[in-house]
Design a protein around this nucleic acid. Structure first.
Lengths: 335, 335
DNA sequence: TTGTATGCGTTATCAT
DNA sequence: ATGATAACGCATACAA
């Protein structure tokens, strides 16, 4: 900046005024000279220095459990769009399904002075307390045990699971499985809705809960043996699309047709769910609203009370549950 | 830091020595007092200030065309693993298939003083020159026109396309399509290999080049009409897995069996290619080597000449090309 | 309208 | 072994 100032025959203050269009006005002639000089020396803004001076990095952190899971990637993109509209940067921390990495990312985000954090945690609470005591505003995109520490933005998992389960029961399936992750608040709510819907059904319903990590590979691994040995339920509600895709693959490998032999419903509403084989019936989470509200909340003045919004979900019926508005292509229909 | 120093009855210099284990030794007793005081006031390191002082942010930037494409997500993870081993941070910029966003990310990375950039560009060269003139070391993971500006790490696309094409020809297919992106250096090399393999075949081979964006949706869109109207080649080599998945879906929708009606080969070797329906034959790019070498190159002293390594790829045969070591599950075989 | 000078939180140099 | 202090690049309060 000093180089630019000297070259333009002015001071660093004026250079700053020109580059930032303010806060003070600058005479048109000087402005021209400054711009000229900046271009000549190839001046590049140093955001590190600016951040130190103004006390904010204009950065938002996002921690996701697994960036190779398209749901999280889509969320990242939605968030980045929102954040970019404010001229801010989103930095993505991929936990790679490791609690250790998740905590490392949160720590680094604090040290890097991010202005806020959007968190999808592998645990219910672990890194949240650390973030909270660092005074960083934080929005968690799943339920948390302690509503004091962070804002949350979720759908009603309990209701979602009930809707999905009831839909499967309405199809006449009476041998159901819930496929979810290891016990935590989210899975527990899903489970409650699942059990409630099953319990409310007039006829007895065979049902059970299966647990796998949130990865299609883990699901394929877990179901291969079951399916091969004939342990095949009539329908499965998977609490993530990724796990639902795993079911589709495991069924394919076992020679089972979806939905004729096993019906499948997922949760997330990823873009890919529309083009899976077969297309997946799923609970669509309101990614866009999550993103929009998250940055809105993170932008509120510090000291504002945490908010806990429960947003609406969509239930999208496609072929995998047995809804037939999209009939199976002939090559895949058994004759 | 001053708070901590006062509380420990010492100076900020000593606090720094303690927190960084150096560069000067500190008496055990003072060290204890400092640690104690730091814990008491909840001291958090400010990396922004440190970066300004030491002149490096210990950050590497990654720009990918589309983070929802699992190949790029896997690459990001591999890179993050490498970068984290050096105690550095990876910041991911998702171009979302927009040239504008790509350039914005590169600009912001310069301003944020990243120590190096790994780039997968939508264009052949656009943002590279800007980065180069900012003096930031840069590794591009595809061929570029000007070898002076940046290091490159690639596989031999020409050879890869030839291997894939020859394999399809060896299956006896003589009506082939190359499915690739809009013309750029990468697609051009693929095309050259494709045409060479076709030309070297003893019998005449029907062949053509189809172009779509790198997205399964774009492919489904583009192929729906063709497939419905009977414009179905015997085999397709898609230059990304994502596009290959699009072919699988379009085939499914059109009631075509893979590989019996259309054979498909992809390129990337994503984890998901092993669990597609059917499993995808593909050219596997050496992600791990890309990542390892990229950080190694970025770590070299400034002024080092750019390097241009061509790494080996793997050709993984699965069901989609017609290789039968993994027979179709019965429900999916036409009877 | 513009110039001077200060401080953001660190690290590291120079004293002591 | 440790204390005082300068400097990193920028934005801005205060002067002029």
């Amino acid at each position: 900046m000093r180089d630019v100032a000297e070259r333009a025959g002015t001071s660093t203050a004026v250079v700053s005024y020109v580059l930032n269009n303010g806060p003070r006005p600058v005479a048109a002639a000087t402005r021209e000279r400054v711009l000229q000089a900046a271009a000549e020396v190839g001046y590049k803004l140093n955001l590190t220095a600016r951040a130190l001076r103004v006390g904010t990095t204009r950065t938002t952190g996002l921690v996701v459990p697994d960036i190779t899971n398209p749901y999280f990637a889509e969320l990242a993109r939605a968030l980045e769009d929102e954040v970019a509209q404010l001229g801010n940067l989103l930095v993505i921390g991929d936990s790679a399904l490791s609690h250790e990495q998740e905590e490392r990312h949160c720590r680094v985000f604090i040290e890097r002075q991010v202005g806020g954090i959007v968190l999808l945690s592998l645990a219910d609470t672990a890194p949240i307390v650390e973030l909270a005591e660092a005074g960083i505003p934080i929005v968690v995109l799943h339920p948390v045990p302690d509503p004091e520490l962070a804002s949350t933005l979720t759908i009603d998992y309990d209701a979602a699971a009930a809707v999905a389960t009831r839909h499967l029961l309405d199809h006449g399936y009476t041998d159901l499985r819930l496929l979810t992750a290891e016990p935590a608040l989210g899975p527990m709510l899903h489970e409650r809705g699942f059990r409630r819907a099953v319990g409310a059904h007039p006829d007895p319903v065979d049902h059970d809960v299966w647990r796998t990590p949130i990865s299609r590979f883990a699901v394929v691994e877990a179901l291969r043996g079951r399916f091969r040995s004939g342990d095949v339920p009539r329908a499965i509600y998977a609490t993530t699309d990724e796990q639902a895709f795993g079911v589709l693959i495991a069924a394919y490998e076992a020679g089972l047709r979806v939905p004729q032999d096993v019906a499948v419903v997922g949760c997330d509403g990823t873009a890919n769910s529309a083009v899976s084989i077969p297309p997946l019936t799923t609970i669509a989470q309101p990614r866009g609203d999550f993103a929009r509200l998250a940055v809105e909340i993170l932008g509120r003045p510090t000291g504002t009370d945490p908010v806990h919004d429960v947003l609406d979900f969509d239930f999208i019926t496609r072929r995998s549950c047995g809804c037939s508005q999209d009939p199976a292509p002939s090559a895949f229909a058994r004759r």
